Simulated assay, not measured.
Amino acid sequence: MQKGSSARFTRPEHVGIELVAVAYRSRSFPVHIHDQYVVGAVENGAEELDVNGTSHVVGKGDMITLNPGQAHSNRSLGSDLLQYRVFYLPPELVATYTGRCDLRFDAPSRTDALDVHRFLQLHRWFELGTGDRLEQESALAEIIDIAFDAAVRPMRENRLPEAVRSARGYIDEHFRESFGLDELAEAAGVSKFHLARSFTLAHGLSPFAYRTQRRIHEARRMLLAGAPLADIAADLGFSDQSHLTRQFQSIVGISPARYREQ
Score class of each variant (00 low, 15 high):
residue 141 A to Q: 03
residue 194 H to D: 11
residue 255 S to P: 12
residue 14 H to F: 07
residue 180 G to D: 06
residue 218 E to Y: 04
residue 202 A to Y: 04
residue 164 V to Q: 09
residue 102 D to C: 12
residue 151 A to M: 05
residue 189 G to Y: 02
residue 199 F to L: 04
residue 63 M to S: 06
residue 219 A to M: 08
residue 181 L to Y: 11
residue 177 E to A: 13
residue 30 P to Q: 10
residue 197 R to F: 04
residue 43 E to C: 08
residue 94 V to Y: 00
residue 28 S to K: 03
residue 207 P to H: 07
residue 173 E to C: 09
residue 191 S to R: 06
residue 28 S to A: 11
residue 184 L to K: 00
residue 119 F to Q: 05
residue 171 I to M: 11
residue 11 R to Y: 14
residue 11 R to P: 14
residue 224 L to W: 00
residue 257 A to V: 13
residue 223 L to G: 03
residue 8 R to G: 13
residue 249 Q to M: 15
residue 133 R to K: 09
residue 255 S to V: 12
residue 97 Y to W: 00
residue 60 K to E: 13
residue 44 N to T: 09
residue 34 H to I: 10
residue 120 L to Q: 09
residue 43 E to W: 03
residue 62 D to Y: 03
residue 234 A to Q: 15
residue 219 A to I: 05
residue 124 R to I: 10
residue 180 G to M: 02
residue 117 H to P: 01
residue 22 V to N: 11
residue 3 K to Q: 15
residue 44 N to A: 14
residue 27 R to L: 05
residue 134 L to T: 03
residue 145 D to K: 07
residue 182 D to K: 02
residue 258 R to S: 12
residue 24 Y to D: 02
residue 188 A to R: 00
residue 114 L to P: 00
residue 117 H to T: 11
residue 254 I to W: 11
residue 32 H to G: 08
residue 83 Q to L: 12
residue 247 Q to S: 13
residue 196 A to C: 02
residue 223 L to M: 00
residue 1 M to W: 13
residue 180 G to F: 02
residue 86 V to T: 15
residue 77 L to N: 08
residue 87 F to S: 09
residue 180 G to T: 02
residue 201 L to H: 08
residue 198 S to D: 05
residue 200 T to A: 12
residue 32 H to N: 07
residue 25 R to P: 06
residue 126 F to C: 06
residue 230 A to L: 14
residue 132 D to N: 14
residue 127 E to T: 03
residue 51 V to I: 13
residue 160 L to Y: 04
residue 252 V to F: 01
residue 190 V to H: 00
residue 149 D to A: 14
residue 156 R to Y: 03
residue 88 Y to S: 07
residue 220 R to D: 05
residue 11 R to C: 14
residue 11 R to I: 12
residue 83 Q to M: 13
